[in-house]
């Protein structure tokens, strides 16, 4: 049984004009799965659909054996799924620590304290800046706050929407190794990435979406080597 599965999803931001035209994907416990594809392929849209942010016209979304089609983000986050949006992923006027604490909004207090310690160990630069406003941080550190917030409830699944967008190659590298670390701690990861090659290399499996439909899928390393995929958007 998959941790998350999208079955024949037709969905859009409104009740008509679908952006996804029948997307299928699944993710098993312990996996890192990457969704890649050209601009406008519906990658982020597919991820948002899984998190209850879209209007689902057709198809089903399941988490474990539960049908969560049409469920709100508030209820999905309580099922142990966290979502890190690409932009506006921190509360800028709140301190780093307050951002993290809100990640544990619905967890018991003792859980929050342990969570903070865990996050500061994972992202040491945040410990020194915990009382600073997160809006004053650099791009890479903001991404750490965003991921830290999402990791606070110790989720079983984390959804990452272009976690390396706008970051320097050095920081991007760091984020990818963090994703591996997070995964090693038992959190499954579904991510959408523009840095497709690097993302696929660290992923167990990958999906290539084009025009809101599945085009390819397979183990990450195979997709990187696939000639058609390479020609299409990996830059040859």
């Amino acid at each position: 049984m998959s941790l998350l599965s999208l079955e024949g999803i037709v969905a859009g931001y409104g009740p008509d004009v679908p952006i996804l035209h029948g997307v299928n994907l699944h993710l098993d416990a312990g996996e890192i799965v990457a969704i890649v594809g050209p601009n406008g392929a519906g990658k982020s849209t597919a991820m948002k659909a899984a998190f209850g942010l879209l209007n689902i016209h057709e198809g089903r979304i399941r988490m474990g054996d539960e049908d969560v089609t049409g469920k709100s983000p508030e209820s999905i986050v309580r099922k142990g799924v966290s979502f890190v949006p690409q932009t506006e992923n921190i509360f800028p006027s709140l301190t780093v620590q307050e951002n993290l604490e809100l990640g544990g909004y619905f967890s018991p207090r003792s859980h929050v304290r342990a969570g903070l310690e865990r996050i500061y160990t994972l992202f040491p630069p945040l410990r020194d800046k915990r009382y600073q406003k997160s809006g004053c941080l650099s791009g890479g550190q903001r991404q750490m706050v965003a991921m830290g917030r999402a990791l606070m409830p110790d989720p079983t699944l984390m959804l990452l929407d272009e976690p390396t967008a706008g970051l320097s190659p050095k920081y991007a590298e760091e984020i990818f190794s963090l994703v591996l670390g997070i995964n090693a701690n038992g959190t499954s990861v579904l991510m959408v990435e523009q840095n497709a090659r690097q993302a696929l290399m660290i992923s167990n499996r990958g999906y290539v979406l084009v025009d809101g439909r599945n085009r390819h899928e397979g183990p990450g390393n195979d997709l990187v080597r696939d000639r058609e995929v390479a020609e299409m958007f990996l830059g040859g």
């Binding site: 986050v77 979502f83 949006p85």
Partner: peptide
């Protein structure tokens, strides 16, 4: 308080507050 922080969070970004599970 948790409520106070959540209020400031909603004021900062209602969308992200929702994704964080704040009602």
């Amino acid at each position: 308080t948790r409520l106070g922080k959540a209020m400031r969070a909603v004021s900062d970004s209602p969308e992200l507050a929702r994704l964080t599970g704040i009602s």
